[in-house]
Design a protein around this nucleic acid. Structure first.
Lengths: 207, 207
DNA sequence: ATGTAACTCATACGTTCGTTTGAATCGAAC
DNA sequence: GTTCGATTCAAACGAACGTATGAGTTACAT
């Protein structure tokens, strides 16, 4: 049995992802973790700091993988094609956490919750590491897509995140009625890369 | 000055969009609306039913516009090209509510909140109307994109919603650091249509 | 003017929230 | 076996929550 701190992180990750930040009570987290109510205050200081810890733990391996994939690409050629850049960026989002995640769905639901939750406390933890990774990809996409304004490139980068996060978040949620339910695993990953590579390769729409 | 019921709907739409369902208190809504705390109970019954009313008011004009655009397209040709279908589906999402919406951002933030909020009460109102519209577009896209499995088509439909909702939701939020900030108005609409038309037109990735 | 229905209001109820407290418990070092 | 830092615990705090109540106010038909 893992230590209390880790079990609280696990429980919080699951519940924040399933019910959002405001929708999850500290009591629900500690109950699921089999820990005492006060353990959150002791180990993390506050509910908001617990969310920051959860978010860090989720995002760090994704960032590391995105960086590694880009390194691998750039080692081969200084100007990788768009499709490879998309795969390198999107792949880690579909891998999610290395272990214990239900096919990455928990992770993505959490990312979706964070993306969707406007509260400052939910967003405050975003650090320099994420920015650095994103900057590297923006630069690489910019070279692969000359003629695209920085603003439109930014729009497309956000589009990538949106598709990946929303789709994965819904794997176990089943919203958007009227469409067939999302598909877990390898198929969705390949669909996303195909979908987004074509999207990124579109000619500039201009201002 | 509009009647109390409308002012509560306006305030609730803004606050639900900005802070989510659980993050918005009935007191905050009535205060912003300049109404009494009990007015929500009197006019809507409960906070959850207020959300349902807000969601209906937001989504109905979007659905109607999507239906009308598709009618217009089908009147011209029985099998419209993908780009036209994308424009017809995405356009109304960028138009948002006809009046008083800050360029549609309020609306989309609300949609994003709903998409991202896993609570059953947030999702319960989705009705037959939305399903019908989506079914019509799924059918039209299916004819325009033969060889695409229903599952992959469902994936792409969700991709459209994700891009539109996330982008618009962030117009006034400024998340995703490392990318230039989102752009309001006409540019984003054209970028989205270009981006998504290329994405939808991609060859099938297969199972 | 008077009755009536629609509405607004101040106030209170019971619950749940995040956080804090101080005592109890544990494990290893000495 | 005692000391001590680290951790866990039950209990309680005040604040904020959604909702309910009943009196008060308005507008209008009669």
């Amino acid at each position: 049995m893992a230590d209390t701190r880790t079990q609280i992180l696990d429980a919080a990750e699951r519940l924040f992802g399933e019910r959002g930040f405001h929708g999850t009570s500290v009591r629900a987290i500690t109950e699921l973790a089999g820990a005492n109510l006060a353990a959150v205050g002791y180990h993390f200081g506050s509910k908001a700091e617990l969310l920051a810890a959860v978010a860090r733990r989720v995002i760090e391996p994704i960032n590391a993988a995105q960086n590694a994939e880009l390194d691998r690409l750039l080692a081969r050629t200084p100007d990788p094609p768009v499709a490879d850049l998309v795969a390198a960026f999107v792949g880690p989002l579909f891998d999610g956490m290395p272990d214990g995640d239900e096919g990455g769905a928990r992770t993505s639901r959490l990312i979706m919750t964070i993306l969707g939750d406007p509260a400052e406390e939910v967003r405050a933890w975003t650090g320099a590491a994420e920015d650095a990774v994103r900057d590297r990809y923006v630069a690489a996409f910019g070279r692969a897509l000359p003629g695209l304004s920085p603003e439109e490139l930014g729009f497309r980068m956000r589009g990538i995140l949106a598709v990946a996060a929303v789709d994965r978040a819904e794997v176990h949620h089943r919203p958007v009625p009227g469409c067939p339910a999302p598909v877990p695993g390898e198929a969705a990953r390949r669909w996303a890369i195909t979908f987004l590579a074509a999207a990124m390769s579109a000619p500039p729409a201009g201002t």
